[in-house]
Simulated assay, not measured.
Amino acid sequence: MRRHVLGVPLLLGLLYVTGPAPAVHAADAWTAGPAAGGGTRPDSNGRPYFYLQGAPGTVFEDTLSIVNPERTPRTVTLRTVGARGAWIALASRQVRVPARTRADVPFTVTVPATAQPGDHPGTLVAAADGREQRTEVRLRVSGPTLAALSVEDVRIEDGLIRYALVNRGNTTLTPRVAVRADGTLGGELLRREPREMQDLAPGRRAELAEIWTDTPALDRARARLTVTADPGVREEATATATFVEWGPGLGLGGGVAALLAAGGLGIVRHRKRAAQETCAAQEEERG
C-alpha cells in the first residue's frame, strides 16, 4: 500500500512522544529500537527489527523509540548505514531525551520506482556516551525473487576449515552449514551436524571458519561442506590436505613413504577386491 511522505515540519512536531520509561535497574542504559505496535512481524518481545514490504515507488513510515531510564538527560545521535541508507529520511539526526522518558523519532523509507525486486537491508544507528545501538531495517521490494548461494575458497589450514559464503540471489538467506572430513587411513575424522549461521543479505560475502584442532598426525583428509538454506538452496564444496607430523623417528622420507604406502595399500585392496569379484563371476558362469 502506497503511503504519502509526511512533511518535515510535521515530522519534527511528532518527534517527542514522552512518557514514563519502563521500570529498570539504575545501572541500565538508554536503548533504541522499533516503536511498539507498528509495522509487521512482531514477536512476544516486540519488534526486534523493522520489516517493510511493498512495490517500487512505495513510501513507508515507521518510528524509532529511544528510551532513557537514567536520571540524567541523554543526547543521542542518529545515522543510517548500508547501501540503502539514502532511502531512509529521519525526522532528526540528533535527539535529546530527558531523564526517565522516551523519545519517538519518525522516519520514512522511500523505495525508488526503479528498485529491483528482493531484499534491500539497511540499518539505523543510535550513538551516545561512547556506545552504539543498531537496528535493522529489512525492506523487501515486491516482485520475482531468486534464492542462490555459493560456497567458495574452501581450504584446510592452521587447525581451521576456512570458507566463504556468497549470497548470489536477491533475497536474504539463513544458511545452515554441515561439515564432514574423511581420511585415507582413518575413515571419518570429523562430523558437524548442520548449524544455523547469521542472515546473509543479497550480494554479501561472509568469511567463515570451522575449528578442527584434532587433525590426524598422518593422513590425507578431504573436507566436505554442505550448505542449505530456505527455500530449496543446497550447495557443496570440498578441500583436501595432507597431514604429516614430524618426530624423531619420522623424517620427510618416512612421512612420504607412509603416505605412499597408504595409497598403495588402497590400490592393492581395490585390485584384490576386483579380482575376487571376477573369480566369483567366472564360477557362476561355469555353474
Rank of each mutant, 00 (worst) to 15 (best):
R3D: 09
H4L: 14
V8R: 03
L10Y: 13
G13E: 13
A29S: 15
G37H: 07
G39E: 12
Y49F: 00
Y49S: 00
T58P: 02
E61K: 04
D62W: 09
T63Y: 13
R71S: 12
T72L: 11
G82P: 00
W87T: 02
R93K: 13
R96Y: 00
R96C: 03
T110R: 13
A113Y: 05
L124H: 13
Q133K: 01
T135S: 03
L139A: 00
S142K: 08
A147Q: 11
A148G: 13
V151F: 14
E152F: 12
D153I: 01
D158K: 14
L160A: 10
Y163K: 13
V177A: 10
V179R: 11
R180M: 00
G187C: 01
R192I: 03
D199V: 04
A201F: 11
G203K: 01
R204F: 12
A209R: 10
E210L: 06
W212L: 02
L225Q: 11
E236Y: 08
A237D: 14
A239G: 09
A239P: 12
T240M: 12
E245M: 02
W246S: 11
G249N: 13
L259E: 05
G263Q: 14
G264K: 05
L265G: 15
G266R: 15
I267M: 04
K272S: 07
R273W: 07
A274W: 05
Q276M: 05
T278G: 02
